[in-house]
Simulated assay, not measured.
Amino acid sequence: MTTAQDIRGIVLLAHGSRDERWRQPIEAVAQRVRADDPDARVACAYMELATPDLPTAVETLIAGGATAIRVVPLFLGMGKHAREDLPLQVEALRQRWPAVGFSLARIVGEEPELVDLLARIAVKS
């Protein structure tokens, strides 16, 4: 649970790719989050094939003063990473940094706003 005194950290977690161009939309989301909430600390992290990984991104946010961290999985579907790997990783983070409040958001693909946006993009001409 976060309190008014907490310094928010947000990790935008994506799958990852060896292709550097793959990061561009993830980094664009991070820039937008920073613009929308200048007080939040924001980092990108990747499950595989790219760096930083989740623990490294979290460590950076904590070093920057974050006392509460929300992990936002930028996955469209509930695959193995989101269903199995990610909850285990977040629990390991809680064990490693017990003084930090961690929360795990739903995958973005389950958010009604994203479903609506994708549908609008699909039908636009």
Results as ranks from 00 to 15, higher is better:
G79C: 05
A50C: 07
D36V: 05
D19Q: 09
P98R: 03
E113R: 13
Y46L: 06
L49R: 13
H15Y: 13
A122L: 03
L86M: 00
G65I: 04
A28D: 15
G101Q: 15
L118F: 13
H15A: 08
G9S: 08
E110R: 14
V100G: 00
Q5K: 15
I26R: 04
G79N: 04
S103T: 13
V72M: 13
Y46A: 03
L74C: 06
R18N: 12
A40Y: 12
T3Y: 07
R8H: 14
E48Y: 03
P73Y: 11
R70F: 00
E111M: 09
D116P: 04
I26M: 14
P38T: 07
A105W: 10
F102Y: 14
M1P: 12
T3G: 14
D19L: 13
P73D: 01
A119H: 10
Q5C: 10
T56R: 09
R8P: 13
T60G: 06
I69Y: 07
A63E: 12
R120N: 03
R18T: 15
L117F: 15
V71N: 04
P52M: 01
L54D: 01
A45V: 12
S17I: 08
T2F: 11
L76N: 01
A50H: 06
D39Y: 14
A92L: 06
G77F: 15
P55Y: 08
E111T: 11
R23A: 11
G77M: 14
P112I: 06
R23Q: 14
E48F: 00
T67C: 11
Q95P: 03
V29H: 10
E59M: 02
P52C: 05
E59Y: 01
D19S: 10
G64H: 06
L76W: 11
I121G: 01
L117M: 10
E110M: 14
R21Q: 10
A92G: 07
V72E: 07
T56M: 02
D116N: 07
T67L: 06
A119F: 11
V100L: 00
D37S: 11
T60C: 07
I121C: 08
A57F: 12
A35R: 14
H15E: 03
E110G: 13
G16D: 03
A50T: 09
A50G: 02
A92F: 02
L114W: 08
I121Y: 13
E91V: 02
G79V: 04
L76A: 02
K80P: 03
